[in-house]
Amino acid sequence: MTELILKSQLPLDGRSLNYPGITIEEITDQSLVSIAVPIDGAAELNAALQSAYGTERPAVGKCTNGSMDNAIFLGLSQDQFFIMFDDAKLNDKGGDPAALIRDSIGHAAYVVDQSDGWVMTRVSGDSCRAALERICPIDLHPAMFSTGNVARTVMEHLATIIVCQAPDTYILLSPRSSANSFLHALDTSAKNVA
C-alpha cells in the first residue's frame, strides 16, 4: 500500500477574471462524459435516458436538460453527444464519471470520460457577446443562438464547444492542454472591448 498522495489540479486553478460587463470564470464542479449511440441503438438509448434523466438524446446543435445532477446533454454530432453534470457524487477519489453514466443508462451506449480533457469556462455579462465576437465565428445573436443551443467550432485556432446557458451567459469548453492560451484569448477579447 502506497502512502503517496495524488493531488488534483484544475486546468486554470479556478481562476476568474472580471471586466466591466464581462466575467470569465472557470467551471470547477462539473464532469463531462461523451456518449456514442450504437448503430440501431437509438431507441434503446432514448428509453434509457428517458428513464434515468427524463429526457431524450439531444438533436445536433441543441441541449436538453436531465432531471438529476443538473445534467445538460450537448448535441454535438449525429451519433455522439456529451453530458455535463455536477460531480458532487464523484468527490471520492477515483470516482469514475463514465462509470456513473454507465450505471444510469446501462449498456445502451458507449461512454467515455472527458472530464479531464477540457477546460470548462463560463463567460457572462452584458458585454460578453461583444468580446466573443472577436474570436467566435458562430453567430451568437439571440435570434440565432439562444439558450439551449450548442456549437462546436474553432476560436483562435483552438477547438471550442460553446453552449448558450442563459441570455448573455455562455459555457465554453476547450482542450485542457491549451487552457492557458484559451484563457488568454478570452482575456484579450474582454480587455479589447471592455
Binding site: 454535438l76 454530432s77 449525429q78 462546436r152 477547438a159
Partner: peptide
C-alpha cells in the same frame, strides 16, 4: 470535406 472544427462529419 471534413468538419474537423465542428461535428466531425
Amino acid at each position: 470535406w471534413y468538419h474537423e472544427q465542428g461535428d466531425r462529419s
